[in-house]
Structures are given as structure tokens and as C-alpha cells.
């Protein structure tokens, strides 16, 4: 069955309200996120920057439903995460979310092609091989389909991760320092592909980075410090990219 899923440009794909995350260490309470509010519209790109320990990755993890918040709400693709079971969150991630991690997070026992196919297989799709292959060719790995992660360089592994994130075009892509483990030349190529795929698929992008030049390519930059979001200012593009 073929279904057309329209993007609703007026409703935020991600809406965060009063998000707080604390950790208890004995008698001490460590507040990592402190009443954070954030909205991301479809196809918008948003960079989160800030010093180490400011809560960027924690915010990304909570937005993606990877962890539970202490308080506050996260509404992702119209669904409130706190009301969902772990399996329901996993299903939502499979359906609407893509990830790119700093340390690639490929499954070491699968080939490049198989790693890309995993999101499709998890959705029960058996006809995605050509899509996955095309995506790998698109990121320049057409001849490395059957290579295992340990046979690929860092940049190649990250390109596999990109292909995996877009094989089932997500509504929102979370990227945690995607160039953190790469040299500048490789980073530049990868970032170009990332924004290109993002634009083509109308995917919203939440990008956590330390790299100001990378952040500058986003529609807007969210600055964080000590678990709070500082007053926002817009990036070089006046408005979110539209399909």
C-alpha cells in the first residue's frame, strides 16, 4: 500500500516545554537541564551550541525520547513522549526520527549496506535494498557496500550513518556533533551531504555542535549554558528552508 504523508508547515515537529533533567548523586542534586523551552518547525534546521556540560546532548537525547525527563513535556511529531511506553517511543523513532552520532554507532557485525537497511527492516519493509544502495552511492560509498565498519574510515562510517538516517526519510533528524571525530576536509564533505539530504527530504534538523562554522549553516542557533537556553538569535538564513 502506498501512502502520501504531507508535511504540515504550520505545526511544530518538535515542541519542548519546561524540560528539566536532574541527577541525584547521594545527597546532591545535579541539574543538567533547567526549564528549557524549544520549538522546531518542519524542515527547519536548528543548531544547539554551548560549552561542554551545558546540557546540549542531554536536551537532544530527551527530545528524541532516548531518556526520561525529570519534568516538562516533549511533543514530537504531534505525540507527547511522556505518555508513551519505551516500545511506543521506539516505534515513533523508527517512523519519524533519524540519528547521526559523533561516534557513528554502526553495528559492527553488519556490512555498510545492512546497516543502512536496518531502519527499513525494522518497519517490515523488504523492498528497500535498491533505495539503500542508491543512498550509499549518493554519499560516495557505492563500492563499499559489503564492507564492515572496521574496514571503513571515520568519514566513511559517518556517511554510512547518514545514509542510514535518510533511508526512511525522517521528519526530524538529530545529529550529535556529527563532525566531532572527523578532520576538517572530511567534515566539510559530510556537512554538505547532510544539509543537502535534509533540504531534499524536508527534514527538520537538530544539530548539536561545538563548531561555529557548522552551526552558522543552520536556520537558527540555540545557545545553551548551565542547562538553560540563552536568548536566541537567527543564523544567516532568514527563514527555515521550505520544500
Amino acid at each position: 500500500m502506498v501512502e502520501t504523508i504531507p508535511a504540515n508547515p504550520d505545526r511544530p515537529v518538535l515542541e519542548v516545554r519546561g524540560l528539566t533533567k536532574t541527577y541525584q548523586d547521594g545527597e546532591n542534586t545535579l541539574t543538567v537541564l533547567d526549564h528549557v523551552d524549544l520549538q522546531v518547525m518542519p524542515a527547519e534546521t536548528c543548531a544547539i551550541i554551548g560549552p561542554s556540560g551545558s546540557g546540549k546532548t542531554t536536551l537532544l537525547g530527551l527530545c528524541a525520547g532516548l531518556d526520561d525527563a525529570t519534568s516538562g513535556t516533549v511533543c514530537l511529531d504531534g505525540q507527547s513522549l511522556e505518555n508513551l511506553t519505551q516500545n511506543a517511543r521506539a516505534a515513533l523513532r523508527g517512523k519519524s526520527i533519524g540519528f547521526v552520532f559523533q561516534n557513528f554507532q554502526l553495528i559492527p557485525t553488519l556490512t555498510a549496506l545492512e546497516n543502512v537497511l536496518i531502519p527499513l527492516e525494522l518497519q517490515g519493509q523488504t523492498l528497500g535494498r535498491s533505495t539503500a544502495q542508491a543512498l550509499l552511492e549518493r554519499v560516495g560509498l557505492g563500492k563499499r557496500l559489503t564492507h564492515y565498519p572496521h574496514q571503513l574510515s571515520g568519514g566513511e562510517q559517518q556517511r554510512v550513518a547518514l545514509a542510514r538516517a535518510f533511508v526512511r526519510p525522517p521528519k526530524i533528524l538529530f545529529a550529535d556533533e556529527p563532525t566531532g571525530n572527523l578532520d576538517s576536509e572530511t567534515s566539510a564533505i559530510l556537512v554538505d551531504i547532510l544539509f543537502e539530504l535534509n533540504r531534499e527530504n524536508g527534514t527538520a534538523l537538530i544539530l548539536v555542535t561545538h563548531d561555529p562554522s557548522l552551526a552558522a549553516r543552520a536556520d537558527r542557533i540555540v545557545r545553551m549554558q548551565s542547562g538553560r537556553i540563552l536568548p536566541e538569535h537567527r543564523g544567516p538564513q532568514a527563514s527555515p528552508a521550505r520544500p
Binding site: A43, E200, N201
Partner: peptide, 26 residues
């Protein structure tokens, strides 16, 4: 590619451990 994409409706994944155990993908 475009923001409006054609998707093949996936089969729902089994909800029980036993059925997951019998699923070919597993």
C-alpha cells in the same frame, strides 16, 4: 527526492516476545 515521499506501509512489528521470537527478521 522531495519532502513529500512515497512510502510503503510497513507491517506492524509483533508486540509479544513470543511472536518476536518467531519473526524472520529476528
Amino acid at each position: 527526492m522531495s519532502a513529500t515521499v512515497n512510502r510503503v506501509e510497513p507491517e506492524a512489528l509483533p508486540q509479544s516476545f513470543l511472536r518476536a521470537l518467531l519473526h524472520p527478521w529476528t
